[in-house]
Design a binder for these strands. Structure first.
Length: 461
DNA sequence: GACAACTGTCATGGT
DNA sequence: CCACCATGACAGTTG
C-alpha cells in the first residue's frame, strides 16, 4: 500500500545547504623575500680619502723619523706622489709615472683635511706604553678586542719599538696556520723563495713571511729583522688606510672614543662588555675576526681601555704586496671604476690577482653576512609563524569542539521533533504509523512524505 | 678540553 | 663570458 501522496505534510522548509564559507586555514605565505641588508655599501669617499691621507701622513712622519703633532699639517699632503715618497717600502706606483689623473685626484683628496683625531691618538702612546705593549704581545690573547685609537697610537710608536730595540714581535702571519692562499685563482704570491719584487720602486723587503705564511723557522735573522722592520713600519703607515676600506666605520669610529656610534649588535657582539665591546661592536659584522687571525695583530693598552680590530688576512696581504689603494675601493667600487682604478697603477700579476681575490672575497663576505642575516630573519619569521599557526590550530580545535556539541544538540532536537511529528501521523484507520515500517523523507522541493521502508529511495536533501 | 656561536672562505649554481 | 649574488659546506676563532 502506498499512501504517500495522501500524506503530504504541511511542514515545508527549504533544504538547508551548508554554506562552504571558504577556507578554514588559508595558506600562510612563506617568507620569500627578505630585504637584503646592504650595510656594506661603499663608504663615503671622504672616509677613504681620509684613510689614504692618514696613511700618507704617517709615511711622511716616518720619513722624518720624528713624529710631531705638526707633522699632520696639511701642507705635507699637498705635495703629491705618495707612492714614490715612501722610501724603502714605497708602493707600487713608480716615482716617475704617476698618472696625471691619479695625481690630481689624490692631490685633491689631500687638500685641506687631516683629522685632529689622529694626532690625538698618537699622543696616546708613550714609549713606556709601547714597551708594555710589546711585552704584552704574548698575553693579549685574553684581550682580543683592542682599541682603535690606542692601536693607532701604538702603531705610531711601533716605529720606535722596532727601530729602537728590534722588537721581538712577529707579524701575525708568521703565526698563522691557515695558509690563506687563494686556491687556484691567484698566482704564487710573495714568499721568501718567491719575493714579489715586481712592484717598481720597492726596496727588497722580506714580505714573504707576512703573506705566504711560510715556515718561520726558515727565517734567517736577517730576513726576520727585515720582516720585522717592514711589518711594523709598513703596517704602522698603512694600517689606517687599509682599514678605511675593510671597516667603513673605522674613521667614524675614532671619535667614538667619546661618542660611541650606535650599531646593531649581533648576538655575539651583544655579549661583549665594557668599552672595548662598545667599540668592537662597530665592527661587529665585518672582519672582526678574520679567519684564523684575529688575535694575532693585537695591541693592548696596559690600562686596557680600548682596542682596534686586527688586520684581516687580506689586509695583511695587501700590505705585503703593497697594494696602493684602500680595501674599500677594491671591494666596493663598481666594476668600471674598479677597472679604471687598476689602470691607474702598474701592478704586478701577483698584485692584480690579489686585488681581484680581495674584491671577490670582500664581496662574498658581505654576501655571506647578508645571507646569514636573511637566514636568521627567516628562522625568526618561521618561528613566529609557527606560533601563530599553533594558536590558530588550538582556536580551531576549540571551535570544532563547540560545533560538535552544537551538532549533537541539533541532532538530538531533530530526533525529538521527528518522533513528535511521526507520533501525530495517523493512517486511514486512525492508527499511528509504525516507525519500523515508515519513515519521513523530504524532497528537494521541501515537501515531506511518509515513505514505507520497503520502497524507500534516497533523496538528497 | 668540549662545545656552540660566529665568521671568513670556497665551491657551486643561478641571474 | 664575465661579474655578481646567494647559499651550503667547511674550518678557524672565540667565549
Amino acid at each position: 500500500m502506498c499512501s504517500t501522496a495522501n500524506y503530504v505534510l504541511p511542514l515545508r522548509r527549504p533544504c538547508e545547504v551548508a554554506a562552504t564559507s571558504g577556507k578554514l586555514c588559508g595558506g600562510v605565505p612563506m617568507p620569500t623575500n627578505f630585504p637584503g641588508v646592504r650595510s656594506h655599501g661603499a663608504p663615503q669617499d671622504t672616509e677613504m680619502d681620509v684613510a689614504w691621507q692618514e696613511l700618507m701622513a704617517i709615511t711622511e712622519l716616518q720619513e722624518f723619523e720624528v713624529p710631531t703633532e705638526n707633522s699632520y699639517e696639511t701642507t705635507q699632503y699637498q705635495t703629491m706622489e705618495p707612492m714614490a715618497s715612501v722610501g724603502e717600502y714605497g708602493m707600487a706606483q713608480p716615482h716617475s709615472e704617476p698618472p696625471a689623473a691619479c695625481e690630481l685626484r689624490t692631490a685633491e683628496a689631500y687638500n685641506g683635511f687631516y683629522s685632529e683625531e689622529v694626532p690625538t691618538c698618537h699622543r696616546l702612546g708613550t714609549s713606556t706604553e709601547t714597551m708594555e705593549q710589546t711585552n704584552m704581545s704574548g698575553v693579549n690573547q685574553g684581550h682580543r678586542r683592542t682599541n682603535a685609537c690606542l692601536t693607532q697610537g701604538l702603531r705610531g710608536h711601533m716605529q720606535w719599538t722596532v727601530h729602537g730595540q728590534n722588537a721581538h714581535t712577529r707579524s701575525g702571519d708568521d703565526l698563522e696556520s691557515d695558509s690563506g692562499l687563494s686556491l687556484g685563482s691567484s698566482p704564487p704570491l710573495a714568499s721568501p723563495d718567491n719575493p714579489v719584487g715586481g712592484a717598481p720602486g720597492y726596496q727588497s723587503v722580506d714580505i714573504g713571511m707576512a703573506y705566504s705564511d711560510g715556515e718561520p723557522d726558515s727565517m734567517t735573522e736577517h730576513t726576520r729583522r727585515s720582516h720585522l722592520h717592514y711589518s711594523a713600519d709598513y703596517q704602522n703607515h698603512t694600517h689606517s688606510y687599509l682599514h678605511s676600506g675593510a671597516h667603513p666605520a673605522y674613521f667614524s669610529a675614532q671619535p667614538i672614543l667619546s661618542q660611541p656610534q650606535p650599531s646593531t649588535p649581533t648576538p655575539r657582539s651583544m655579549k661583549h662588555q665594557g668599552s672595548a665591546a662598545a667599540l668592537s661592536d662597530l665592527y661587529n659584522d665585518s672582519a672582526m675576526s678574520s679567519r684564523g687571525s684575529s688575535h694575532l695583530n693585537m695591541y693592548i693598552k696596559p690600562q686596557g681601555s680600548i682596542s682596534t680590530p686586527p688586520l684581516s688576512r687580506d689586509e695583511r696581504r695587501a700590505l705585503a704586496l703593497k697594494i696602493p689603494f684602500p680595501m674599500d675601493k677594491i671591494i666596493n667600487l663598481p666594476v668600471d671604476d674598479f677597472n679604471e682604478l687598476l689602470t691607474q697603477y702598474t701592478l704586478t700579476d701577483a698584485q692584480l690577482a690579489l686585488v681581484r681575490d680581495i674584491r671577490r672575497r670582500g664581496k662574498n663576505k658581505v654576501a655571506a653576512q647578508n645571507c646569514r642575516k636573511r637566514k636568521l630573519e627567516s628562522i625568526i619569521h618561521l618561528e613566529r609563524e609557527l606560533n601563530q599557526l599553533q594558536a590558530q590550530r588550538e582556536h580551531l580545535a576549540q571551535e570544532r569542539l563547540e560545533f560538535q556539541r552544537s551538532l549533537a544538540f541539533v541532532k538530538c532536537r531533530l530526533t525529538d521533533l521527528y518522533t513528535q511529528v511521526f507520533s501525530h501521523l495517523r493512517d486511514e484507520d486512525g492508527q499511528p504509523y509504525s516507525t519500523d515500517e515508515y519513515s519521513l523523507q523530504q524532497t528537494p522541493d521541501g515537501k515531506i512524505y511518509l515513505v514505507p521502508h520497503t520502497m524507500q529511495k534516497r533523496e538528497p536533501c
